[in-house]
Design a binder for these strands. Sequence first.
RNA 1: GUUCUUGUAACUCAGUUGGAUAGAGUAAUCCUCUCCUAAAGGAUAAGUCGGCAGUUCGAAUCUGCCCAAGAACACCA
Length: 582
Amino acid sequence: MSIIKTVENDIKKIIKDSGYEIESFVLQPSNRKDLGDYQINDCMSLAKIYHESPISIAEKIKKELEKDLRFKDINIAGPGFINLSFSDDFLIQALNQMHDDLKSNIDQQESKTIVLDYGGANVSKALHVGHLRSANLGEALKRLARLLGHKVISDAHLGDFGRPLGLVILEIKKRYPNLAYFDESYQGNYEEIELPITNKDLEEIYPYASTKAKTDEAYLEEARIITTKFQQHERGYYDILKKIVEISRKEIKKVYDFLNIEYDLWEGESDASNYVNELFQILKDQELLVESEGAKIVEVKEENENSPMPPLLLVTSSGAISYQTTDLATILERKHKINPDEIWYCADLRQQLHFEQVFRATRKAKLVDDSVKLEYIGFGTMNGSDGKPFKTRDGGVMSLKSLLELVKTETKKRINYDIVQAQKVEETANIITVATIKYADFLSFRGTDYIFSPEKFSDVEGKTGPYILYSTIRMKSLLLKGQSEIQEKSSRINNNIDRDIIITLLNLPNVLTKSYEIKSLNDIADYLYTLTSKYNKFYAENKILQEENEELKQSWLVLTKTVYNLNLLLLDILGLKVPEKM
RNA sequence: GUUCUUGUAACUCAGUUGGAUAGAGUAAUCCUCUCCUAAAGGAUAAGUCGGCAGUUCGAAUCUGCCCAAGAACACCA
């Protein structure tokens, strides 16, 4: 159990010993540092329950707290706040413990198997800046959940079974009508057929076909028919689909690799299609699948419900299955293959209604056990400065690749070429670029829309990825230089900065737990900055390696190493790497 | 129209299970490199927390009404 949690439990017991019951207790870091390290605000609410003055309650609790040698400077202020600080001895001991084993100070949770669905990449379409958030968020949540003791399986869940693919295949058919894929009499093995299409072609074909379909009704109708064909696994069409997925997936993976995003599974909607028949059987058995206006739907609206709740549309009137169908089938697939305790979906907030529908249908048809938790983790839209979803000047969406290039160019201007070896420049620039972009994305709460501007993501001054990386590298450099002298034991707290840093370190478990609960990384990003900037202040004020007092120097080295290790841990959760030098 | 989200410093955002004096970064002005990487550190200035009312010892946070912006609302995904 973490140090802070242990203290919290003890204080809870102390409050109980004073005669008061309290449900949960979290030790709040004080916002009045002049009065103490921490504040206890619960006396006011206890006063209402016990019909006693808050001051009198605070007095009693204070009396009990004073018996505990870990605390000092206990005082009561205002209407009944109890302020308290930790004794130096306690803090030194805590620092040494965190230095020896950082992970022992993280509260492990009861282990669950979680499937995490994020990314939102669509086959044959280039990743654009809008895909950034889902991937960042999902990847970091995966890492956070694993750190807290969960088993997480991440799935890219590619969009590869809808009309866009119908359009792409149609256009390929127009351009290469003689391909064996389109020859019904072909008897050979399609896997051996070369598809003369590169990913670059695909990125050109889709927008072309999509635009054409908007004005050409016959073309669209042809695409619809093709969509139905591969959805029914019709020979040739299903095979070319798989081929296209392969080509596109390689390219998508390159970008995700660059961003340090790793999927355990690269399943797509097409893989879930194998479970569509089972899905329909389950729905039919329960008489949930009904005909409506030529389509097959499932009603999920509750009686007396005012909010708009359209039915799920499983099969369109033209016979195609929708993404609602594949999402339901995917739940079946995951039940059979993984049998998870929880399934999380990271997707844009505009998809909230969709997931509400899917979850309702899942419950109604009992596709999974009621104990299986389905969680939708929505995030805000990336808007342009006009408040509308971000577009480039020519009206298109900025590709993720061009954003990366743009930031990389800026990054390269800042690298210290006296320190970084020539052959390391590219790698270093890549790492910093990813950190710059991801960190900027994590800073705001996941649910709020934010203004996207390339400038914002190119920012390197202040509360940014490069700041954290630079500082971390400096700690590492210092530790390397002081390595021969470190004896790994702190024995002194010199002043308020040391003290403040240790108090901040102690708060780690609460930051992690809260981030996990709200499924947002902004607290971790902010905590990382707070800790780093406190350390930087300390670094600027003390010449650690030149310090002549050996006891003090050792204490500072231990502090440095602990902050360094924690930075590495948190950067890893956010999915950021640290370069050697920069 | 129905439902939902948002409105905090010049800008971009934190803070929303009610707590003390509302925080960061940027931009602005001014300091600090003979010294462990100055992509650093320090200082100053910047706010009717959209508006009005209510609940409370106490409200940016909860409730109601209003104003403004955005999103979703079956045959796209």
